[in-house]
Write a protein that binds this DNA or RNA. Structure first.
Length: 430
RNA sequence: GCGGUCGUGGUGAAGCUGGUUAACACAACGGAUUGUGGCUCCGUCAUGCGCGAGUUCGAGUCUCGUCGAUCGCCCCA
């Protein structure tokens, strides 16, 4: 017999974990709503071109995408990130024509990247993200960061650090690229092979390089802040002023450049600085993108967004002791003795109709093992259907805490059960 | 793409420098107790050690390959 297992880098959200996801999603959604964001759901796969844009040098786009074709002509890709699809939708559905801009949207769902899995990193993973498209204001950047910040605070994360930088507008960035390339060119053969490639493709990424981080040439590297033109400089300052006003602590990291190529002006990363997140300390990250909407054929408007890794959020929240899995437990358990036919199913259904989370015994098992199941389920009440009582239209209800058991007629059953459950709930609230 | 560690029943795991019946514990199931448990006692539960090949008289133990897990590098959320 052939046996299967889930593909590498994927995982099953088993019933005991699903509660965590539901709770997490609930928390994130309610905060997003609070900030005026509404949900958008875009397809899990898109035309490859949506993600693989011209001049994109990122690893994610060039090496990690799940791309397929069903007829040899079309090319589709499982989304590796959320922003591109949302922007595509914004343009396609002409959201830019709506009276109120920006359009503020949030999304969550699976993303796919063909990476080597490790702690806090999977090939299929869940991201929650926001995008606000159609307006540009330092307040939006700061508000977006504040939104994400309040989310992770709500999840109990305490030791986080916001790193922020500005890549400036096109002009600033172009100047800086040239300056950087000129600076590195004489040293090119001292740098790692990746950086040699980056020099021409996207010299900004050299700043990110961990291999060459200690190279002497990195010491006096020109910083983007010195290449920003006046408008870019002013914009960045305003963003920082907003963050100060919101009392969000941050550090300016002049070498922060981010992995996706579409960012302009504000870029930021929020990382967890304690705990055992391993190498995956980044909780959420994002920035502003000026050119993306027009790239997709929309007007020349700006957008801002971030994404957070849900697996990482759960992992870090649990490290902080936040309880995400308080799943409602069985309240009533229906047992059966002897030949009672379909009665257990009927009674369980009745209990559920009364509003109690109910489970019952499916297989014919010894009373002992049924009681063990009751014990494990944590049910407050056991309903015991006995063959002989049933002959008189009677049924037993047993309080599992006090061990008191009563026998009532089937007519009185609903009232009696309600009464006992009510008593128990009062007992618990004391 | 590169490197480290690991892979034994439902679960947690022992298994020493290869040596013949794969400990122990928990859970589960049955019984002592024919229809009222949670304690106790007894019993049952891996013809097999991720998978495949090799070395050997003999492999869970060694070698190689492979698949997976995990951690790190790279990169990223």
């Amino acid at each position: 017999m052939k046996s299967y297992q889930n593909p590498k880098g994927t995982y099953d959200v088993r019933p005991d974990m699903a509660a965590k996801y539901q709770q997490l999603e609930g928390i994130l959604e309610s905060i997003a709503h609070f900030y005026g964001y509404e949900e958008i759901r875009t397809p899990i796969f898109e035309d490859t071109g949506v993600f693989k844009r011209e001049n994109d040098s990122s690893d994610m786009v060039n090496k990690e995408m799940y791309t397929f074709s069903m007829n040899g002509k079309d090319s589709f890709t499982l989304r590796p990130e959320g922003t591109a699809g949302v922007v595509r939708s914004y343009v396609q559905n002409k959201y830019y024509a709506l009276a109120d801009q920006p359009v503020k949207m949030y999304y969550y769902g699976p993303m796919f990247r063909h990476e080597h899995p490790q702690k806090g990193r999977y090939r299929q993973f869940e991201q929650f993200g926001i995008e606000s498209i159609g307006a540009k204001s330092p307040m939006l950047d700061a508000e977006g960061i504040a939104l994400g910040y309040s989310m992770i605070k709500a999840l109990g994360l305490k030791n986080v650090r916001v790193r922020i930088n500005s890549l400036g507008d096109d002009e600033s960035r172009k100047n800086y690229r040239e300056k950087l390339a000129a600076y590195f060119r004489p040293h090119i053969h001292e740098l790692c092979t990746d950086c040699q490639r980056r020099l021409e493709q996207n010299p900004l990424r050299i700043l990110d390089c961990k291999v060459d981080a200690d190279h002497p040439v990195m010491k006096d590297v020109p910083l983007i802040s010195d290449s920003l033109n006046e408008p870019s400089k002013a914009y960045f300052k305003e963003v920082l002023d907003c963050l100060d006003a919101l009392e969000i602590p941050y550090v300016i990291d002049p070498k922060l450049v981010r992995g996706l190529d579409y960012y302009t002006d504000t870029v930021f990363e929020v990382e967890n600085i304690t705990g055992n997140a391993g190498a995956q300390a980044t909780v959420f990250a994002g920035g502003r993108y000026d050119g993306l909407v027009s790239y997709f054929g929309g007007p020349d408007v700006s957008g801002f967004g971030f994404a957070m890794g849900m697996e990482r959020l759960i992992m870090l929240a649990e490290d902080e002791g936040t309880k995400l899995d308080e799943m409602p437990k069985t309240e009533v358990y229906v047992m059966s003795l002897g030949n009672v036919g379909t009665k257990p199913l009927e009674i369980a259904t009745e209990c559920r109709a009364l509003g109690y989370i109910t489970d019952f015994n499916y297989a014919s098992r010894s009373l002992k093992s049924q009681f063990k199941t009751v014990e494990r389920s944590g049910a407050k009440v056991a309903v015991i259907i006995g063959e002989s009582e049933l002959a008189d239209n009677k049924i037993n209800i047993k309080n599992n805490r006090t061990k008191e058991q009563i026998t009532v007629s089937l007519d009185e059953f609903a009232d009696a059960l309600d009464r006992i459950m009510e008593e128990e709930n009062e007992e618990n609230s004391l």
